[in-house]
Structures are given as structure tokens and as C-alpha cells.
Design a protein around this nucleic acid. Structure first.
Length: 556
RNA sequence: GGCCCAUUGGUCAAGCGGUUAAGACGCAGCCCUCUCAAGGCUGAAUCAUGGGUUCGAUUCCCGUAUGGGUCACCA
């Protein structure tokens, strides 16, 4: 033992604290609730899967009166992307996810268990590594990358399990004296964990989501401290989650195979094990098969896609809940207006198979969400969204706020049946641009009118409908009067005003009332489908209507 | 390839030894209707497969197939 201590001193001359000191520095939390964390690496944008994870983290912590914190895992300096954490934090915030502790804002840490950025915790990892060396549970490894590479190739060729273990763990078997000598001589090394496991033996643990898991012990002498002095993920996880007093680690199921390593590390360090909850991967359909949502191929993989398109964040959250927990949808059906906070999430009820990402369902939920907004709320939402994501729409709705509000109010405010045709805020341009004179003109210049003629409904009929309509239109009319006037006009021109009747004997008429109104609709909106024409006309105003109709007339 | 995880309609899914196998999205049809969206009603569509255990398996066990994950000084 004496020798291991010498070795440890030699390897970590500047480390004077012990694990005992750390235990005192980071005492157990005096709360009953769950302590969870989101531990992003600064390597890119916020992935949809990560949003899913953080949603769970926050929910589990908050519903038990616990703490949800954020820790930055920046131990891979090579892959680091500038601004990544800032970006992720910002995206999370838009979805209403703000950590209670840790890195709560860009460059701002809060809490007593910090620092919450791994690159600033170097001393802590070294204290733990030193302790392990002292106990003979870790050792310096002098193997070069090339040596590792050749043994790996040899192992693969011989169909052996690849890795650093048993007889292939060259440095684990050299004598302590030699280790001391080589460290003294300044030879470069990394630190490896001395595994006491065997892949022939199985360990079992109970996953909060997956249930009982049986898996082979780890027998690999994994690296715990890299040549740059920073810890590997495995080591940092054990150390950080222990000293930050995490109770449940919620992470993607790609981590499941490394649980044996983690358990071993916790045990060797003398730490109490944390609970694990491994969540299934969100998949996406790719042709006939399904696969993991890919950052490269799938635009939906980045949550920014939804933000940019103007999906209300709460709609995405709502959708995520439907795949998070199997009893969410029934609950929602019975609790339509309740806050998500009131829903009790149970990890055990989570499906352990990977869910397919279903954009159709998101669209449906989003549509529903937007339909609940009144015109003023819609305006505020679209305004703040477009300020950041869509300048064109922002300019458009702010040309004349009063006018925009009138447009938004159509079939929305005080409507018996609220219109549900906006899936995302981005759709506003497509749905409402014809309300604006210049955009209406632009549309016609670029695409022409969308009138459709046939043997019966000829250009002449279109002309008749429109020219007559201008004579009878009166903004003061209420809806019934307005429509009965159209009926009278249509009848006089040979249209049938009763849809049922028309369906029975279409040959007797030149068209239905629907065909007649369609002509008016196209003249005014150049769209085949629009909301209620009565309200559209009231909103657009007589002068503009006249101008548009006359424009059509002039061309026929 | 080794190991691990999974498998109920096209998708998300209830189910936890005996059910006409819920519900939602989507799809089809009908109704309503000035178009569309919505809404209402109806419908088509599911327990991967082979063995067990059991009076009885979607449900429990084993094998097979399929899909996914993982085997770094990346997380």
C-alpha cells in the first residue's frame, strides 16, 4: 500500500484534498425531492431528444419538490462549438425549461454544488483519481495510441473481445516500482481504472423506466483521466453526480451498455449509487424502416426547426407528453384546461420502445393550440415570434396593427366554431397575405387568377356575376341579408341556391351557389379556399373590394 | 460479430391470464355547409413468429425473426 501511495503522490503532487474533504464541501442536500440534471456537451444545437430529456428532468424534479440543475460537460475540447450552450439555454427557455440550479443562464452559475462546468472541476476529478490510485484501483497507462490500435486490430482479427482488459491490459500488470520509475522519468501517461469485473458474471439493477436489467460486468480498464488532464465522461459522471447529489440520472438509452462501468465506478469510489432512467430513442421513419432522429438528415432533429416555423412551444411540449407517458392523453381529455404541472408523471408508465416522431400529430396539436388564442393573444404571439424568426411577417402584421387584429378576429373572436387552419405562425403569410393590397396584386401578377371556367361557367358568366355583385354589395348588410342578395343574384343568372337540389339535378343549372360565391371569392382573394367571405369583405372594405373587382372586370 | 434493449392497426398507444382488444393522429365514407379548415357520425385497419406453462394466453417462460443501441484518451 505504501507504494501505491508513493505512486499517487508522484502522479498528483499538487493534490492535497481527499474525498472526505469533498464530502464535506458538498454535503447531502436536505430535501426530499428528486435531484435531476441535464448535462449537455457544447457540441451543437438543442436536439429534439434533449428537449425530451430535459422535459422529463424538470418534471420529475418539480413534481417531487426537488431540484433540476444544468451541468456543462465540456471535457472534449476538440469537439466544442462556440456559443452552443448559450444557444441551447435559449431554446430551452423558449420551451419554458429553465434550470433551478447550475448553469442557469449563459455564463451564470447558481448553486452550492458548483462549479457546474466540468472544465472548471479539474481539481475535483484529480482528488478522486488520486484516491483511486492510492487504493490500487487505478493506475498510469503508458500505452500509445498506436499500440492500442494494433492490439485492437489483432483482437478483431482473432475474433476476441476488443479492448483493454486481462492480458491485453499491458500497463495494469507492470509492477508498482516500474510505474513509479516511468512516471518519475517523465514518460507520458493517462490514468486507467483497474477493473475487478468479469464479463462472465452478470450484474443486475433496476432501471426506473426499463425495469430490471441484467448485463455483464465490466472488465475493461477504462480511461478515467485523459492526457489533457480532463476526465472521461464515465469518470466525470460518477464524480459529479455524486457530489452534486443527483438522485436520478435521466439519459438516453444509448448509455445503457455503460451502466456496468458506472456502477463499478460508484462502488470503487465509495459512493452511493444513483438511480438510472434510460429513455428510449426518438425515431423517425425513413422509407420503410425507422431510425434515430439524425442531426444531419432530419430538420426536425433540431428544436430550432419548430421554433423557426412558429410552432407554439407549448404545442411541442404537449406532443412530447403524449409520447412520454402513456396515460397522458386520457388525462388531457378529462382535464382540457389544466396546466401540465398538474399532470403526475410516472416514469414506470413510459413506453420502453422508441417512439416514432409523428409530425402529423404535432401539427394537429399545434393547430388546436393556436385555435385557443384570441386575436389579441395571437397578435402578441406572432409578433414576438416573428420579431426573431420572420422579419417579413413581422413587418406585415405591424403595418397596421388594428387591421391585423381584424383579420385575426375572423372566425376566431366570438366565433361559434373557431377556425383551425393555422398549424404554425409561419402559415400566416400564406393564409392572410391577400388581405393586403400589394400582396394581392403581387400574387396575381405572378400567378394569374385562379378562375376555372367550363362550358357553362364561362368568362361571360364570371363577368356577369361580378358586375352585378358590385351593384348589390352594401357593407352595412348583415350576414343574412348579404347572403340572400347573393342568392337572388345567383338565381337570376341560372345558379342553383340549394346544394341538395343542385346535387340531384346538376344539369338544370349552370352551377351551384358554391360556384357563384367561388367567383366572388377568387375575384377578391384569388384563393379557392378562404374563411367566411362575409367577414373577409367587411375587413377588406368597400373601396378595396371595388378596386379588386373592377380589376378583374377590366381583364374580361 | 459479442452484449443490451425493444416488438399491439400506417403512427402514438391502453391492456398487466378470461375484454365485442380502449382512445388519439392519419385514412375512407356520410352529414353539416358559399369554399376550405373545423365539427358530428360511421367505417377499414393491430397483438411479429414457433414452441412451451395453463382449463385458458396479447398478457408468463424459451427459441427464431425483425428493428434499434453499444463496443474510443466522444459524450
Amino acid at each position: 500500500m505504501e507504494k501505491y501511495e508513493m505512486l499517487a503522490e508522484l502522479m498528483f503532487p499538487n493534490v492535497t484534498d481527499t474525498i472526505e474533504d469533498l464530502e464535506n464541501r458538498y454535503p447531502e442536500r436536505k430535501i426530499d425531492g428528486e435531484v435531476t440534471r441535464y448535462a449537455p456537451s457544447p457540441t451543437g444545437f438543442l436536439h429534439t431528444g434533449s428537449l425530451f430529456t430535459t422535459l422529463l428532468d424538470q418534471k420529475i424534479a418539480h413534481q417531487t419538490g426537488g431540484v433540476f440543475y444544468l451541468r456543462v460537460e465540456d471535457t472534449d475540447k476538440k469537439r466544442e462549438v462556440e456559443g452552443s450552450i448559450e444557444d441551447q439555454l435559449k431554446s430551452l427557455k423558449e420551451f419554458g425549461i429553465v434550470p433551478d440550479e447550475g448553469v442557469v443562464e449563459p455564463k451564470k452559475e447558481e448553486g452550492k454544488y458548483g462549479p457546474y462546468t466540468q472544465s472548471k472541476r479539474g481539481d475535483i476529478y484529480l482528488i478522486c483519481a488520486k484516491e483511486l490510485v492510492k487504493k490500487g484501483k487505478a493506475y498510469p497507462c503508458f500505452c500509445t495510441a498506436e499500440m492500442l490500435d494494433t492490439t485492437r486490430k489483432m483482437q478483431e482479427k482473432n475474433k476476441q473481445i476488443p479492448g483493454y482488459y486481462g492480458i491485453y491490459a499491458r500497463c495494469r500488470n507492470i509492477s508498482v516500482d516500474e510505474m513509479i520509475e516511468r512516471v518519475k522519468s517523465g514518460e507520458e501517461y493517462i490514468v486507467r481504472f483497474r477493473s475487478n469485473g468479469s464479463h462472465l458474471k452478470k450484474i443486475s439493477y433496476v432501471d426506473k423506466i426499463k425495469g430490471k436489467i441484467e448485463i455483464a460486468e465490466n472488465d475493461q480498464d477504462i480511461v478515467i483521466v485523459k492526457s489533457d488532464g480532463l476526465p472521461t465522461y464515465h469518470f466525470a459522471h460518477a464524480v459529479d453526480d455524486h457530489f452534486m447529489r443527483t438522485t436520478t440520472v435521466i439519459r438516453g438509452e444509448e448509455w445503457l451498455p455503460s451502466v456496468p462501468i458506472h456502477l463499478q465506478l460508484f462502488d470503487s469510489l465509495g459512493f452511493e449509487r444513483v438511480n438510472y432512467a434510460h429513455i428510449p430513442t426518438i425515431m423517425i421513419k425513413d422509407g420503410e424502416s425507422k431510425r434515430k432522429l439524425s442531426k444531419r438528415k432530419d430538420k426536425e432533429a433540431a428544436v430550432s426547426y419548430f421554433l423557426k416555423a412558429g410552432y407554439p412551444p407549448e404545442a411541442i411540449i404537449e406532443y412530447l407528453y403524449t409520447i412520454i407517458n402513456s396515460d397522458f392523453e386520457p388525462w388531457r381529455k378529462n382535464n382540457k384546461d389544466k396546466s401540465l404541472d398538474e399532470f403526475k408523471l410516472r416514469l414506470e408508465k413510459m413506453n420502453s420502445a422508441g417512439a416514432l416522431f409523428d409530425i402529423m400529430k404535432i401539427n394537429d396539436i399545434s393547430k388546436e393550440t393556436i385555435s385557443k388564442l384570441n386575436s389579441h393573444e395571437l397578435f402578441e404571439r406572432v409578433n414576438s415570434w416573428s420579431e426573431e424568426y420572420n422579419k417579413e411577417i413581422n413587418d406585415l402584421i405591424n403595418r397596421d396593427k388594428f387591421y391585423t387584429l381584424k383579420i385575426f378576429a375572423i372566425e376566431r373572436d366570438e366565433a361559434v366554431k373557431i377556425r383551425k387552419d393555422l398549424v404554425k405562425f409561419e402559415d400566416i403569410y400564406e393564409n392572410f397575405s391577400y388581405f393586403f393590397h400589394d400582396l394581392y396584386i403581387k400574387d396575381i401578377d405572378e400567378n394569374g387568377y385562379v378562375f376555372e371556367t367550363n362550358e357553362k361557367i364561362t368568362n361571360r358568366v364570371i363577368y356577369e356575376v361580378l358586375s352585378n355583385y358590385m351593384n348589390i354589395y352594401d357593407v352595412e348588410d348583415d350576414k343574412d341579408v348579404w347572403f340572400s342578395k347573393i342568392k337572388t343574384l345567383a338565381t337570376s343568372l341560372g345558379f342553383c341556391t340549394d346544394m341538395k337540389q343542385y346535387k340531384l339535378e346538376p344539369d338544370k343549372y349552370i352551377g351551384s351557389i358554391a360556384d357563384a360565391t367561388s367567383i366572388i371569392r377568387i375575384a377578391i382573394c384569388n384563393r379557392k379556399n378562404t374563411p367566411d367571405m362575409y367577414y373577409i369583405m367587411k375587413t377588406i372594405g368597400v373601396e378595396e373590394i371595388k378596386s379588386r373587382v373592377n380589376n378583374v372586370l377590366a381583364k374580361f
